[in-house]
Design a protein around this nucleic acid. Structure first.
Lengths: 95, 95
DNA sequence: CAGTATCCGCGATGATACTG
DNA sequence: CAGTATCATCGCGGATACTG
């Protein structure tokens, strides 16, 4: 299961639900198209919940499922490693 | 830093150094070309050490550096998560 | 055995325009 | 606001043949 944005999406949702636009800004430079595609895959995988509020203007909130939270927890040690070694990582040519 | 084989390569080297051919078989169906490309990137990143034995027939051994071992350790909890949830993961459509 | 070299398809991603 | 639709592109990775 690829997608270079999925990790960032899950990470962005850690601190609570976000609306589509908020999530887009939180992730960074992702295009609308890719955000939709990847968030839908995460929904299919049961990692993210999509809540539609039938109103105008449209409102959709994305949040982590328990399953998604468990994955994020498992990724925490990897995140810590990244922080600890950020200097070495950034020093990698081209990387 | 992409590459769908890097994780498998690091994992395969966990139990000690491997020669090129051994590593190739350990990783599975990877082509020679990709194995070289990715192992060289790992070497550049300082995660893998490449030891050349000047002899005939040629012999090259790949092993984890301390840095590589530290990354593998950090990935361990992710691996555990994968094992615990393998059923749910395999049930994902197309996944 | 351990690589190199070359060709090439295909899927992932980006850009842009449009819609309910 | 939250999508959809379409087109263009780019590079990863597979296949194959060759080399020290």
């Amino acid at each position: 299961m690829g997608g270079k944005w999925k990790g960032l999406i899950l990470f962005a949702l850690q601190d609570g639900p976000l609306r589509f636009g908020q999530l887009r800004r939180a992730v960074g430079t992702i295009s609308e198209r890719m955000l939709i595609l990847q968030v839908r895959e995460l929904e299919t995988a049961g990692l993210v919940h999509r809540e539609v509020y039938q109103q105008v203007p449209p409102k959709v909130e994305y949040s982590l499922t328990d399953f998604g939270r468990s994955l994020n927890d498992a990724m925490a040690s990897l995140g810590d490693w990244g922080e600890r070694n950020i200097d070495r990582i950034e020093a990698i040519p081209f990387g």
